[in-house]
Design a protein around this nucleic acid. Sequence first.
DNA 1: GACGAGCGAGAACGATCGTTCTCGCCTCCC
DNA 2: GGGAGGCGAGAACGATCGTTCTCGCTCGTC
Lengths: 190, 190
Amino acid sequence: MDTVATPAEPALRAHVVEVADALFYGRGVQAVGMDDLRSASGVSLKRLYGLFPSKEAIVLEVLRRRHELWTSSLAQAVAAVASPREKLLATYDYLAVWFDDDDFRGCGFINTFGELGATSPAVAAAAREHKASFQSYMASLVDAAGGSADLAAQLAILAEGAQTTAAIAGSGEAAGQARRAAATLIDAAL
Amino acid sequence: MDTVATPAEPALRAHVVEVADALFYGRGVQAVGMDDLRSASGVSLKRLYGLFPSKEAIVLEVLRRRHELWTSSLAQAVAAVASPREKLLATYDYLAVWFDDDDFRGCGFINTFGELGATSPAVAAAAREHKASFQSYMASLVDAAGGSADLAAQLAILAEGAQTTAAIAGSGEAAGQARRAAATLIDAAL
DNA sequence: GACGAGCGAGAACGATCGTTCTCGCCTCCC
DNA sequence: GGGAGGCGAGAACGATCGTTCTCGCTCGTC
């Protein structure tokens, strides 16, 4: 039977992607070599290239995982509160918790887009799809609250701005500022 | 006397920085080699390393120039209108014009921060100072309009969010959405 | 016209990258 | 127990990077 020493291929892929995510997010994609990924994951180069055809494929898989984690965590935070208005504001509370992580370094999609978006169409598309997904999620929440599509776009812009502001300034206070702005916009619109 | 063939050193530096800015902004810093900069600028490698001690020094000079251009262009757009409220909104009109540039690819500071912020403290500091400068400029405009510091932070976050949204989505409509949100926040606060 | 300083073009260099290959060892099956 | 297949460790490879060096030419000066 399988022992710890030989995990099934899907579990190994997941492990590699998780380690790669931490490395890429913390240092930038181009600053992490395949050998760094090998040491950090304990998976040999031969196996890495058996699991993934190239480094870019790993990058895309990392972005896919990050999108899923973000989406489900946000949905969980939204589900924890009751009213449509609270659900809208829950987004910014979720951001506040995230910003206070010690290793918070901004939105991984924005960072990777800035680094590789101009050279890798696949990376640019992944970032675009992630942001479009968030915008349409916000639109569904706003719709449930009786707001317009324009309000949804405005709330999404606030969330984007809070992420880059918190990342570059190195402080999490942008989450509270964005939350107060969102509350003002919501109350003015409804 | 000096002819076209031997421009003075400051003019040559300015030329190199301008060309480097276009290359770095369009493709990302790490995707542009010193040889690309040599071909694009027509300045030999030996001269490049006589003008600047390293590639990173050129990157920092590019960011410094970009900060000055952004700051003075924004001030000019703000000066063109009269009332304090209009001056606040002029920021977003300025963004709208910028977003419609064919080669708009987001905020150069955000992009460079995402690419090199984790590895180069100097780049991270340049991005931080640029954003802090913008925030304090917004704060002075808000103060002149009789608004609070929190309103200033909120308006700055809207501008940040519009930049990344426009960059990744590839469309400039975020400027108008951010402008309408800003108007709502201003009217609610004053 | 001879000479020396300075410059451009590009080779050279050492480092590093993504990717592949080699080799030795371990393990599993008959 | 013996042979074969698969794996890990790391060398190898070709490309590319930032940076420096070499060489030959051009020019200004006496």
